[in-house]
């Protein structure tokens, strides 16, 4: 992994890229959610990340940790569904783990994301294999040791791998075996987060 310093600007661009990606993919996320959930995942995340970008633009924080902490707080307060506290916890804990450094390395980001992903597992009481966000987040953080692109690919594969799984958490779990055959919406949006991270890093490298 490169030792390029990732500063607050990088994290602002990442969050903006996530918001754009969620905007683009919202209909698909909602469609996946209408099969096994309550059909609000796309619109909930769209509202949440729009609020994140608005807040970050109004008062851009000076450190990577502060960008993610502020983004996480916004998600918890604006989303209105389970993805709010889950993504909010992911970003907030990751941000707190980054501390108040002006810039961080990719390795430091990976270690902080591990803390964030563990906090999501604890909050939701779930583990990889339950057909949740963790099925994309967990392999992505592991693959981040290789590269940002590898993490994005691992997240995408993790999301696709939820199709044959039976959902064990959330509303989809009430469907039991009928949840099998559907890709988990949360794992799908988690993959967007890492795809946006890879795109942001690649644009940075191309500069």
């Amino acid at each position: 992994m490169s030792e390029t310093a990732l500063d607050a600007g990088f994290f602002l661009r990442w969050m903006t890229a996530v918001a754009a990606s969620v905007d683009r993919e919202a209909p698909r996320l909602t469609e996946l959610d209408s099969a096994i959930g309550d059909a609000d995942h796309g619109s909930n995340l769209q509202r949440g990340f729009a609020a994140v970008v608005k807040t970050l633009e109004a008062e851009p924080p000076g450190t990577p940790g502060a960008v993610l902490t502020m983004a996480g707080r916004q998600l918890i307060s604006t989303v209105g569904g389970a993805s709010g506290p889950l993504y909010g916890t992911l970003l907030r804990r990751t941000g707190k783990a980054l501390g108040d450094a002006d810039s961080v390395t990719a390795d430091e980001l990976r270690a902080a994301l591990r803390t964030g992903v563990d906090a999501v597992a604890q909050l939701g009481g779930s583990a990889p294999g339950d057909a949740t966000m963790l099925d994309a987040l967990d392999p992505a953080v592991e693959a981040l040791a290789t590269s940002f692109r590898a993490a994005a690919e691992a997240a995408g594969q993790g999301a696709e791998a939820t199709v044959p799984l039976q959902a064990r958490k959330g509303r989809a779990s009430y469907l039991g075996e009928r949840s099998v055959g559907h890709q988990d919406p949360g794992a799908t949006s988690s993959a967007l987060l890492f795809t946006a991270l890879a795109e942001t890093a690649e644009q940075e490298a191309a500069k």
């Binding site: 918890i76 709010g84 506290p85 909010g88």
Partner: peptide
Amino acid sequence: LGSAVLTVKALLAE
């Protein structure tokens, strides 16, 4: 249930 539980837990963790 669901997001009600998670939201309160996340707020308490704040």
